[in-house]
Design a protein around this nucleic acid. Sequence first.
DNA 1: ACTTGCGTGTTACTAGCGGTAACACGAGTG
DNA 2: CACTCGTGTTACCGCTAGTAACACGCAAGT
Lengths: 214, 214
Amino acid sequence: MDTTQRTDQQRSADRRRRELLEAADRVVLRDGPQASMNAIAAEAGITKPILYRHFGDKGGLYAALAKRHTDALLDSLRAALDAPADRRERVEATLDTYLAAIEARPQVYRFLMHPAEGSQVGDQGFDVGKHSAPLLRRMGEELAQVIEDRLDLGPGSQQLARVWGHGIVGMMHAAGDWWLGERPCSRAELVRSLADLLWGRLAAAGDKVGGPGF
Amino acid sequence: MDTTQRTDQQRSADRRRRELLEAADRVVLRDGPQASMNAIAAEAGITKPILYRHFGDKGGLYAALAKRHTDALLDSLRAALDAPADRRERVEATLDTYLAAIEARPQVYRFLMHPAEGSQVGDQGFDVGKHSAPLLRRMGEELAQVIEDRLDLGPGSQQLARVWGHGIVGMMHAAGDWWLGERPCSRAELVRSLADLLWGRLAAAGDKVGGPGF
DNA sequence: ACTTGCGTGTTACTAGCGGTAACACGAGTG
DNA sequence: CACTCGTGTTACCGCTAGTAACACGCAAGT
């Protein structure tokens, strides 16, 4: 009841929670996102109700799990975005950081973005649809803030920055997802191609064959 | 055994299949993607095993359901992409077509892209993660083909076109998703902002405040 | 020392899901 | 009349998320 005791208990609970999260991480990374609560509990050496006491429901556990990876990724992206270099270099560094992250830990990435990847039957996997969006949204909003803070876009800059933030994040995400699956080129080439796209090479390219408006 | 009879039966089966798909469509659009096979069967006025005989499993039914909407969307996108106009106009028309589609039928869109949106408990919803990707991939590949066919990109054009195809589709998708949720601006403004981004306005913008490399 | 409370853990259960086996009716065919 | 074959059903399995109810241990209060 007194404060010190409460603190002790709280600490112990926090440690337990961390242990449970680490166990969940192992299972999810091994079995994919359709890992059952039973399996996670077993990995942690305890039984289901304890998991539910700590995380409420499966969504809660997933959210806690996702937050760890999400925060880590966002931290490294912020670092790349804040590096002292010119704009194109920073953009390329940020793209490369993101791609390096998903390349280094594809299981984590697939867990965050592609929930029911390995599922085939019952499929009560995590409903990541609900939770992967937040990651993309957070990245979009953060990028929008950076754009608005640092670029002079004239009137309507806030709205423009937000559109661009979400659009660029989506571009990075989709291209990265495709690249991770097919590996059609090196990471550096992908980064360069995307930066070229953002730098207007699409508009600047010439037409290939003659045609009316073409 | 004879051909006419087989044809009759096949026709009847196809009609039945269409009816079932329409019933499934109604249920999914009403109950969200976590609609149960039982509910779909009930809406169609039959029982589960018939559904399974027609579609194999839940994924099969979803795939058939998704294919209808996906094909329709891709058709209208192709039309916009092929319109006789200059490049920027075509890009804007395509973006606008996509956004108009998701704006007009947001339930369909959310079903295709955000599987477990309304789920809260058991959540054995469709695993759209597995099936939404194909839509984005198809759009990316088609766009890549168009880009490669019509633009003169110099050496490495095929790879560049594919990166751009998937990247642009991802940009459109993410921006559209965000826009559909928050409606921060009109559709036309969004289209214009995205086209501006593709036209290199990000690179062309000036810095806002003085700084070393900034 | 005895009881009271509380945190931690368990077993045993419910409700609902996807999916399937086994059976039943109806129509055309030898 | 028997025989198949398509269409439909009921009744079940195994699995899941999530929950009640009970049991141990340990510190505090009297």
